[in-house]
Amino acid sequence: MIADDHEVIRMATRMTLEKAGHEVVGEASNGVEVVSKVRELAPDLIILDMDMPQLDGFAVLQRLHAEPKPAKIIVFSGLDASRYAVRCARAGASGFVAKDSDLKQLVNAVQMVMSGYKLFPVTEYSSVDGSAVQASEKELIETLSDRELTVLRSLAKGIRIKDIAAELLLSEKTVSTYKSRLITKLQVGNLLELVELAKRNHLI
């Protein structure tokens, strides 16, 4: 099953997988639909985008991983692998493939994961373009929960608290609490500094 909010990406992924001999049993364009269709269709494998409306990728991963017979999941994402691959593995994914890679890599990942292997890029924090400040910022970011990271990315994209609340199915008060907690945990003074930190660390 393919889960992505972009129809063109779903179409290209479907064509590539079917050409490689795989059967695509369904598609989903938002997080709530993913969970519902997985329960209905019981696919062996899910290709999951992390940036989707209604339920973000981490919430979807956690819900699907908690199912009695969880399907294998490959995260197919435009997010920075060095920041997100390990988090996706912890949340229950079996593999991570970057969207900027060749679709053949996705086919190879599908074959490996279906054969029982896990597939994640080997990434290390590089200090080539960094400094002690960036390294310590990375350490602070690592302390965030998946939900805090999702809220941080939404704030950094300029999405209003009201809209973040609607998308994540939370109250506005809860999102405001997350925002305050992020400012404290990441040791910044205000929302602008929070956004700059997110951009500096390639979170958006």
Rank of each mutant, 00 (worst) to 15 (best):
K118S: 10
V122T: 14
V110L: 11
G95I: 02
A98Q: 14
V133Q: 09
T143I: 04
S176R: 13
A98N: 04
V188D: 13
G116K: 07
T123D: 09
V175W: 08
Y117I: 00
K138F: 05
K99S: 08
L119I: 04
D129S: 11
Q105T: 07
S115L: 09
D163E: 15
I74T: 03
A156Y: 05
E137H: 12
G189A: 10
A156E: 02
G158H: 07
T150N: 09
Q134D: 14
S94E: 05
L155P: 06
S145R: 10
L194D: 09
M112A: 15
V151H: 11
T184V: 13
A85Y: 00
V122M: 07
Y125F: 12
V175T: 04
G92P: 04
K173W: 03
S131I: 02
L152V: 12
S145F: 03
F96N: 03
A98V: 14
L169I: 06
V128T: 12
Y117S: 11
A93S: 08
N190M: 07
S101Q: 14
V97C: 05
A165Y: 05
V107C: 08
G92T: 00
L140T: 02
V151A: 06
L192K: 10
L170R: 15
S180Y: 12
S171K: 12
N190F: 02
A166V: 04
R181C: 11
T123L: 04
S154Q: 14
C88T: 04
S82T: 07
V110N: 06
A132L: 13
K185T: 06
Y178A: 07
V188T: 10
A91C: 06
V107K: 03
I74F: 05
I141F: 03
L152F: 03
S126T: 14
K104R: 13
V151C: 09
C88Y: 01
A81W: 01
D146F: 10
E172Q: 15
A81P: 14
Y178G: 09
L197R: 01
Y178W: 07
G92K: 01
R83T: 06
K104V: 10
L103E: 05
P121G: 11
G78L: 08
L194P: 07
S136Q: 12
P121S: 06
K185Y: 05
R160I: 10
